[in-house]
Design a protein around this nucleic acid. Structure first.
Lengths: 243, 243
DNA sequence: CCTGAATAGGCCACTTTCTGGCCTATTTCT
DNA sequence: AGAAATAGGCCAGAAAGTGGCCTATTCAGG
């Protein structure tokens, strides 16, 4: 898991403990993306704040809640809700998986359990994500890794309506500097694209994520537009925005 | 009030809001012993973590918890929860997807928001599901469709600890009638297998889902065993239970 | 009764974040 | 129009959080 602010990590830790019952700190630390030393301090902090977390020493030990505090209400932040939704959409694209149909009902219930205002914001975000069919074998073979720092930067810009700058290597290997408005996401497992408006060319462009390097959020903000996403999807492979 | 660590201050702020209903930031900041600028940031942080705090501008304004209509509680049935969980696990196997790391945190929070008893049942179910790497290209090519009626029957038997009968076509095309205890699931996208004990042969066997036909739940029940699942996974491809 | 695994926590250099002050913009009530 | 309040950008100094390394302690199993 990626870097997160301390408070969020604490929430995640409590959720893990509740969901898993008991777990060794080593595993939890890995899951949360911090060292065991830091996790140990997190636990100490939470204990100081009044939570009854017990530790079992020795083999097969771990930490767990002593007595259960009243259940916390479901409190997902936007990224978590988007992540859940996208996972379900992708899984439903794979036919014949067990429990995947039920999963579709589950995500609806989860979204319904969010406050109205938050649900509305979320809907606007999900509207900008398009899930396509699985990528062809050749595309699959050419898929490269995507750095965590790149994901962090993109997720933030996409969510917070901030423009994004990066260097790009196109299909023929030419490199260029880009400044874009990241309007949408188009996924063709296992690769995905940013549906964007190029600020310098004032035109719609599509960028494959594993060809992007050196991302940096820009100061400039933008107004996300579902129309841009729909337009680019409608024009399909014939559009002139393919990079 | 005196200086406190940020986490405690957040707790105190929430308590104040609950107790007072609505208050201007100026007063709250003084109460908490920080500047208004810091309090403003605290509120922003809490909002980002999913708390619905609203601000009323202008004279007589202040901040308060959002008043929303009573939300329907999150009531996922077992299949829905399993479906969500499995979707997230599968997505996380695909490296570099946007928001997939956050999705992992989200599913934990969802599970944590379930009542304790349900959470415990669910954990026993999830313990019996193993997610492997993506299938090889040749396996992928040979993947066949899985009928909905088959999924329904299997899901029910797996969940309710009921034995399952079906006719099976093995690797060399030979057909046979089987009666099994469906202990586990092993997924290699896009195909998946039942990890089972064959009642007639009294031995562990693995059945590929798209080779099964005419499923019928049997009257007999069985005791699911995580040990069976672990054992079959540990022995890997060398086991004699491959069909 | 010894060994290994696990929690518990001190110390320290290095980062990162937080904080407060100052600023502007925007909304709302009188 | 004017006052009051939320909203948030920017900056330099202050205060944490973090990871690595260390030791102590407890517990289960052979």
């Amino acid at each position: 898991m990626s870097k997160r602010p301390r408070a969020e990590r604490h929430d995640a830790l409590l959720a893990q403990l509740r969901a898993r019952g008991s777990a060794p700190m080593r595993e939890l630390a890995e899951e949360l993306g911090v060292s065991t030393r830091t996790l140990r301090r997190d636990v100490a902090t939470l204990r100081a704040r009044g939570l009854d977390i017990e530790g079992d020493r020795g083999r097969g030990g771990g930490i767990r809640f002593a007595r259960y505090a009243p259940l916390p209400p479901l409190r997902l932040d936007e990224a978590e809700a988007v992540g859940l939704w996208l996972s379900v959409q992708l899984s439903r694209r794979v036919a014949g998986l067990p429990f995947s149909r039920a999963g579709g009902g589950g995500i609806q219930k989860v979204l319904a359990a969010l406050p109205e205002e938050r649900r509305w914001q979320l809907r606007r975000l999900l509207d900008r994500i398009v899930v396509g069919p699985a990528a062809s074998a050749s595309l699959r073979a050419s898929a490269g890794p995507v750095a965590d720092t790149l994901l962090d930067a993109f997720e933030r810009c996409f969510r917070d309506q901030v423009c994004l700058g990066f260097s790009y290597t196109d299909r023929v290997g030419a490199r260029s500097q880009r400044r874009i408005e990241p309007h949408g996401i188009y996924v063709e497992l296992p690769v995905w694209y940013i549906l964007a408006v190029d600020l310098d060319k004032s035109a719609q462009r599509m960028f494959r994520m594993d060809r992007i390097a050196n991302p940096r959020p820009l100061a400039q903000r933008f107004e996300p537009s579902r129309a841009v996403v729909e337009e680019m999807m409608a024009r399909g492979a014939g559009g002139s925005w393919r990079t």
